[in-house]
Nucleic acid binder design. Structure first.
Length: 582
RNA sequence: GCGCCCGUAGCUCAGUUGGAUAGAGCGGCGGACUUCUAAUCCGCAGGUCGCAGGUUCGAAUCCUGCCGGGCGUGCCA
């Protein structure tokens, strides 16, 4: 790599001052201002103080001493307080460009993950209602990170954890049953804190029409392996009504769970999310994993009993207080189930687990990581990414979204209103841990002026140009150094300079878990392409300057490739033609 | 009270992990269509980077203390 070349050349020049590789990390960065060259190092500034030398003079000495191949770096300059700026030789830029284009080039070489298995868990919403837009943000991030990790050579695995065993599901069943009984004219009190959303009323109304056959038919939706455990109750709603309350609630719970999971899965599918595993909490209970995890914690001496409850001594691992894992009434807490779940995740052979959580769970991190350490798993194994809250504004006012109170914007509504691509793109332009205000009115109104269209348009524009060129009988040909070296305009070289950053952008986005670097990059590439497109004509010069026209076509071809790679990572479609603006 | 996150243009947000003159989009104003698709391009206006110190060659970025907003602080999930 170019950066390695520069780093070792720089190190060689400072050896005479007694500075060696282990003493300093040489940093290279892309200057903001293009007149400062392509790559810049602050080496002399960092060394200046230490060697008691004037940084600018030191930079001058280094620049004079450094030995670099002329066909790679064609200028070394010092600037400002002591920066050393490098300018990449034109021929080498084209080499780097072709390396991005080449199927076994740079994009293959960045796959350094050695196929290590990484589990990425996201959304994992309670199965008590339709997915809301908060899940959409998590989905966009999680899925993008899964792809990014793949792009740098990991075997990444998307996972969804289903809390199908807790109180919430029972409460859900009770709520549905109550709605149903009320519809049947039976006096029935609504459970305290129950789910009041419209969707349960509708579900209850539908149940009145459903007979055993249609219920079984609906269950067919879960034929595949991962959903085997979601089975419909026997009979129909009338049968369930007649059972004693406990059993009756169980049937309504089972039915509601089945329906809601089918919605959630369909919503995910429509949003382009592909989960490798849907992991059910009930499986943990059936396979006795809670007990086993508890035993192991005991074995390592992290468990004690007090006030009739069983506690995990999380304070040994930096938590602020100890936590209950089995309540005084003998019921395990959600925390214990989570420990068992993550322990099983570890046992399944993942070398790392990344969880996406909401901000309301950040207080949970210390105890969860503590539990992993108590189980003798490295504290780094579990990595928690907090996705900050999304505040939805309607008429300029925040919407209070609570499933129980039933006023929330669903992911489906979001997709209908603005489309999956726009939603994904907007979520992915923000970094994970910043709060996000999502103005629904604004987005609906301006969806056609959203930045995502800017990028899509750049792609479609290239497709259109390629088609026109072909129609006119022009041959684009495989991008080649000979042809591309004919580029002369600043607009062309600015674009080249941006395109060759692709490998670096992918690596940095994956490493920092910050997919928003991709949207920023896609935008930059598109912007430079639009400018190039205006300034550098192709078809109009094809008769007078056929070689120049061809080199511009090849540049367009590589640009299209880069846009496709990035959009695919983002999970956004790259259209050949823009649909009519509404 | 304590813990975590955030505070950058009128609004929504970037700022390459400490770099050079802080950037986009939207909104505002003014230009470019007998077009390789104007969902585009060109120009203008808009800033005490919440406040005050500190660290150093250099701070929006790091450390401390305030101010303001959000979230958490259950034998809930």
């Amino acid at each position: 790599m170019l950066e390695d070349l520069l780093k070792s050349a720089l190190l060689a020049t400072v050896e005479k001052y007694g500075v060696f590789e282990e003493d300093i990390t040489v940093e290279l960065e892309k200057p903001r201002d293009r007149s400062h060259g392509d790559l810049s190092t602050n080496l002399a500034l960092m060394l200046g103080g230490r060697l008691e030398k004037n940084p600018r003079e030191l930079a001058g000495d280094i620049a004079a001493d450094i030995v670099l191949p002329k066909d790679v770096i064609d200028s070394v300059e010092i600037a400002g307080p002591g920066f050393i700026n490098f300018r990449i030789a034109q021929e080498h830029r084209i080499e780097l460009l072709l390396d991005v284009w080449n199927p076994d080039g740079a994009l293959e070489q960045i796959k350094t993950g050695a196929d290590k298995r990484i589990n990425v868990e996201f959304i994992s919403a309670n199965p008590t209602g339709p997915l809301n837009v908060v899940s959409a943000r998590a989905g966009a991030f999680g899925m993008c990170l899964v792809r990014l990790l793949e792009a740098v050579g990991y075997d990444s695995h998307a996972e969804y954890y289903v809390n199908d065993a807790g109180r919430q599901v029972k409460l859900l069943g009770r709520s549905l049953r109550s709605h149903y009984l009320q519809l049947m004219g039976q006096d029935c009190e609504f459970p305290e804190g129950g789910y009041q959303g419209r969707y349960l009323e509708i579900m209850a109304a539908e149940l009145m029409e459903q007979d055993t056959t249609t219920i079984q038919k609906a269950a067919k939706a879960f034929d595949d392996e991962s959903f085997q455990r979601v089975a419909p109750p026997k009979g129909n709603a009338e049968d369930w009504r007649k059972l004693d309350e406990e059993e009756s609630v169980g049937c309504f719970s089972k039915y509601a769970l089945m329906k809601i999971l089918s919605w959630q899965r369909e919503t995910c599918r429509r949003f382009g999310l592909r989960f490798d595993t849907w992991y059910f909490e009930s499986e943990l209970h059936e396979t006795k994993r809670l007990g086993r995890a508890l035993d192991r914690l005991k074995k390592f001496g992290s468990i004690f009993e007090e006030d009739g409850a069983v506690w995990f001594r999380s304070t040994d691992f930096g938590d602020e207080k100890d936590r209950v894992v089995v309540r005084a009434d003998g019921m395990p807490t959600y925390f214990l189930a989570d420990i068992a779940y993550h322990y099983h995740k570890f046992q399944r052979g993942f070398e790392r687990a990344i969880d996406f959580w909401g901000p309301d769970h950040h207080g949970y991190i210390a105890r969860m990581k503590g539990a992993m350490e108590a189980l003798d798993i490295s504290g780094d194994w579990l990595e928690v990414q907090i996705l900050q809250q999304v505040t939805f504004l309607e008429d300029g006012k925040p919407i209070n979204m609570s499933k129980r109170k039933g006023r929330f914007v669903t992911m489906d509504t979001l997709m209908e209103d603005v489309g999956a691509d726009v939603a994904k793109y907007i979520f992915l332009t923000r970094k994970p841990n910043s709060h996000l205000d999502f103005d629904l009115d604004l987005v609906k109104e301006q969806s056609s002026e959203n930045p995502v269209f800017y990028v899509k348009y750049a792609h479609a524009r290239i497709c259109s140009l390629m088609a026109k060129a072909e129609e006119a009988g022009m041959k684009t040909g495989e991008p080649s150094a000979k042809c591309l070296n004919q580029l002369t305009e600043a607009a062309e070289w600015n674009l080249v300079g941006e395109l060759i950053r692709l490998p670096h952008v992918i690596i940095s986005a994956a490493r920092s878990r910050e997919p928003h670097r991709l949207t920023g990059y896609a935008y930059e590439v598109s912007e430079l392409y639009h400018k190039f497109y205006h300034q550098c004509k192709v078809l109009k010069i094809m008769d007078d300057q056929p070689e120049m026209a061809q080199s511009r076509l090849q540049l367009s071809l590589v640009t299209r490739h880069v846009l496709r790679v990035v959009l695919k990572l983002l999970g956004v479609d790259a259209p050949d033609v823009m649909e009519e603006k509404v």
